[in-house]
Design a protein around this nucleic acid. Sequence first.
DNA 1: ATATTTTATACGAATAGTGTATGATTTATA
DNA 2: TATAAATCATACACTATTCGTATAAAATAT
Lengths: 206, 206
Amino acid sequence: MEQADINIKPKKMGQIITTAEDLFQRFGFKRITIEEICSKAEVSKMTFYKYFQNKNELIKCIMDNWLGHIVKGLEDVSKMDITFTEKIRILLRLKEETNAKISKEFILEYMNPDNDMRIYFREFYDRAISIFIEFIKTAQFRGEVRKDIKPEFLIAMLNKMIEMAKDEPLVQLYPRAADFSLEINNFFYCGILPLETLDNRNDEKK
Amino acid sequence: MEQADINIKPKKMGQIITTAEDLFQRFGFKRITIEEICSKAEVSKMTFYKYFQNKNELIKCIMDNWLGHIVKGLEDVSKMDITFTEKIRILLRLKEETNAKISKEFILEYMNPDNDMRIYFREFYDRAISIFIEFIKTAQFRGEVRKDIKPEFLIAMLNKMIEMAKDEPLVQLYPRAADFSLEINNFFYCGILPLETLDNRNDEKK
DNA sequence: ATATTTTATACGAATAGTGTATGATTTATA
DNA sequence: TATAAATCATACACTATTCGTATAAAATAT
């Protein structure tokens, strides 16, 4: 999927991005130095500066990749000819993935007032959210989601559900993790489906 | 358990240790600055230097705590009047905990040749291992473990088992996570029990 | 063979982190 | 309330780290 895009890029550039992405996600942007990225990516510093002006440009590049990934993911889901239940399941996974990226560490740095990247972070966050909202609006237009629900509310709901999925004692109630995620999924599905389609729901499930 | 020791220490000192412990485990020693510890622990830098000469002394203090925790844990287990199956279960958890502490990040810094703390790290690692080995030797003396097994082999086995427990597709084979950990536990148990006690094993289980 | 890419090393400049001094403020204790 | 002890914010000189660039050698591709 994203593979194709990466392959067009020079090999070393790809190594830098992949390594940096991993390090940034684990330790946050601030803690990682260019030199650490280079040595882990097995690339010399000179090569780094050949492809990126500085660390911030690399960060922007990576965050743009993230956005692209979300956009593409949602576009693909939109096009897919599957039940909306399935779509929600994929959406959930995508949101969870995004959350992992915009994690504590990210938020922390984003909050820091004396960070040059602050404006860019805010922009990224807003765009990510608005992409999700756009997706939901489309679904509302198609009649897959009740029209009187605020998309922003759904986003908040998604986040809460992802939190729930991390609540160990809760998950333990289910014989296997998959059962729990199905439960969450179904709850979501039943709660947002337009009223007029309530009758066909059971048929659709089969 | 360890609670008591902490309470004797001045309050702020405790805050420093707790915060630093958390940060070190998540990001490694090198990445964390004294100032970050202070601000997260809500302690001024002056207070930090009141209790610790420098970052290395804090690290030593924390690593000593870890050792103490292992020693106490194993001593407690030794004293407990429970089946050896149970003991192994607790031992496994303790080893897992220790592994989390001496994680990738730790090893990485420990490997770094130009690190002043290198000798201390090596020493810590050796002592931790030898404490486990001592525990196993005691168990062998008591006849709880087959005498012809090398303790070092058991340590290696424990590590492998902890790795296995993180192998998702494998864990998925079991209806619930607990079942898998029981399986591992029983396998270990059956494999190391002295031959002469093989007959009573089933009775002991009940 | 030749052009391109990548590399190691070294370097000054900029930045960030350390550890200490000072005096004000808070908190505990009598 | 008075007094001692802890904690604090701020500023500071000093050190270590990181940045970004210049150079020329080595590796790789064509």
